[in-house]
Amino acid sequence: MAEFQAPYQDAFTDAHRLWGEPELWRIIQREGRPLTASYYVAALDREYNAAGEIVLRDENRRIYVSLFGRTLALSLAITGMTFLLGFPIAYYLSILPMRYANLLMIAVLLPFWTSLLVRTSAWIVLLQQQGVINNTLVALGVITDDGRFSLIYNQTGTIIAMTHILLPFMVLPLYSVMRTIPPSYTRAAKSLGATPWTAFRRVYFPQTLPGIGAGGVLVFIISIGYYITPALVGGQSGRMISNEIARHIQQSLNWGLAAALGSMLLAGVLVLYWLYNRLVGADSLKLG
């Protein structure tokens, strides 16, 4: 305290220029309470104005709401992709004789047992501009050397790599449900005059819904909190909310904001699960 001599106003502004700002003192007054909502306010791209009201931040500082939106959109896209790819695989597995099905099942499970980092790095090798896919397309004359696709370090990279990594989570529940559907149901529908498409749509498909629900919820919930793959192949446009949480934990050291973002993500997942339960019923989930 010996260094702080009157006049104190000058002593404070000498110590740091920000002590001269009335805003700083207002913040101390507002945040001095044991519990404050300010991190949640910041996580919703809002802030307190001079009068203490919650207002939207400047446009160039609004990032989290749109990032939550992007995370949701990417997760939905990935869930959709795994469904489109996983459904035919699971169906084919379920109608094959057991010994072939087991062999194919190993092909599905092999990547599942490989390290996540190895699989993600493999995608980097495949997708980069001088990578296997672009080089092959150039060699075949499909694209010119200047027209190489940007398949990585953007959203495309995140979607491709995560779809591959999460595919087993869709295939396994679907397969376990499809195995229990007796083929006689579809045959009966056909013998009663249904076209193959009608038999599939009205008889077979509804019975796979518990598997689709389980796979969808599983893939969606895992991808909404996914971290390492977007960090490695997502660039800036493929980043998700979990990358931002990690940044606040590790780099900016804003643990309060990271905790606020994290608990909002958790709450969001719980709401979605509740919604799913209301619409489909969690009892019908079949994980195998």
Partner: peptide
């Protein structure tokens, strides 16, 4: 040390936009 916090925040926001 003095300006890092605000510049880091602005830079992070800039990267994401």
């Amino acid at each position: 040390v003095d300006y890092g916090d605000e510049l880091r925040e602005r830079f992070a926001n800039w990267m994401l936009q």
